[in-house]
Design a protein around this nucleic acid. Structure first.
Lengths: 228, 228
DNA sequence: ACCCTGATACTCGACTTCGAGTAATCGAGT
DNA sequence: ACTCGATTACTCGAAGTCGAGTATCAGGGT
């Protein structure tokens, strides 16, 4: 009964089965044609193990297995009452409760000091181009949805992604100009560190006297008692 | 040589070791005091297996193992040249190349139709409160960083999270008012579907004649040939 | 009649992730 | 002198993730 609620694919499976009984492959096809694989990671390996785990938890049950010719047999699953309750409860939690998300850009930014500022500026330039392209594609997709008169209800998630992408683009553009203008707090220290390391000085040597090597900006890097 | 570059914790390990040789526990302590565990998921199990895998790939090497008293032995690792190159290359990739991120809210929104609109509105209300609290905490943390004169360079990632959280809050607030006012495309269909299901009608019955049961909005749900 | 592409439907096992568990030491208080 | 919680330092196994691989069949072209 280890209901860990980790993989949202399991939630999508419950949602599909709450419409009608299906076999796993049909679930994957349904999610695909509805474009949900854009928002929920779907791959076969996970799908089948997730289904198995839901069955083990009693949230779905295997209805029957059919076999046509000598093709692999299809096991059709039905949602149980417990499964329906879990669907509603889990989805409620997803909507009501923000959770710490670890994005790759956040990870990258947290280690950004490991590359010299000029290189970082170039990399962010590249990212901006890629982001613009992605945003363009998203907007085109939204136009197509509108032409098909698909109610917004079924593509809220892409509006959300649009909002996040726009925020990312704005942030990165702002960050880039601050790096280029040197108005980002710590710019000098950042540049100086990489100059010294390029000259062969070790991290330990620099940190033995940060203020001496890097300037006043580095005073905050000293242990608190030594900050005079 | 299965360089899968999945877990950013491995990147953080490389970054730490590029400063000086350390043993795994020291790496974890370092990341913690620098607040990087906010941005990079860190737990012991993963840490040790990630370190082992880096060693297997030749990106780091075990320098020596020391033992004090009868305490568990500590294995100190050093970064190799290949490791230094990998650090720079991987970090460059993270900064320059956006990757599809699967957030839990996006997953939730993509299945939002499974709950009735009034319930969803309440859940989003709850989320807004939680988001405000989280934003408040983040702002307080930023103030403290500023008081300590910590250069911005070392907390860019929290500025980024701030930007994302703000975007999420704005989006959710806007979505909520659209749901409440009924201006979200598909509102009627959404409400009607849940009324019918509450009366015991099955999904299949509804979908047998969507326009009849749900109104004109549902025409786009028909296969394209039948949209007359 | 034959081939070839693409869809159908799943299986397998190597690799990762996770967090509780273990076990020793340090230091602050009583 | 003692004890109790915090810190140090890692281990282990159950569970989950991933994507390439397998095998069958349908339909269209040649």
């Amino acid at each position: 009964m280890a209901r860990r609620r980790s993989n949202p694919l399991a939630l999508a499976v419950l949602e599909c089965l709450s419409e009608k009984p299906m076999h796993p492959y049909e679930i994957s096809a349904t999610l695909r044609t509805r474009g949900k694989e854009q928002s929920i990671k779907l791959n076969y390996g996970s799908l089948y193990s997730v289904v198995e785990s839901l069955a083990k938890q009693g949230l779905i049950t295997a209805q029957h297995t059919t076999r046509e010719g000598r093709r692999p047999e299809r096991t059709v699953y039905t949602i149980t009452e417990a499964g329906q309750a879990e669907l509603e409860d889990w989805l409620s939690e997803l909507l009501s409760t923000p959770t710490r998300e670890y994005t790759s850009l956040e990870a990258g930014l947290s280690l950004v000091g490991a590359l010299p500022p000029d290189e970082v500026a170039q990399l962010l330039d590249t990212r901006i181009v890629a982001l613009r392209i992605e945003l363009g594609a998203l907007e085109r997709a939204e136009e197509i949805c509108a032409e098909m008169k698909l109610p917004e209800l079924f593509s809220i998630e892409s509006q959300y992604r649009h909002a996040l992408l726009t925020a990312e683009l704005d942030f990165v553009q702002d960050l880039l100009t601050r790096i280029r203008k040197g108005t980002l707090g710590g710019s000098k220290l950042w540049r100086r560190t990489h100059e010294l390391r390029a000259e062969g000085m070790s991290f330990d040597e620099i940190m033995a006297d940060p203020v001496g090597h890097l300037g006043e900006e580095a005073r905050a890097l000293l242990p608190r008692e030594e900050q005079s």
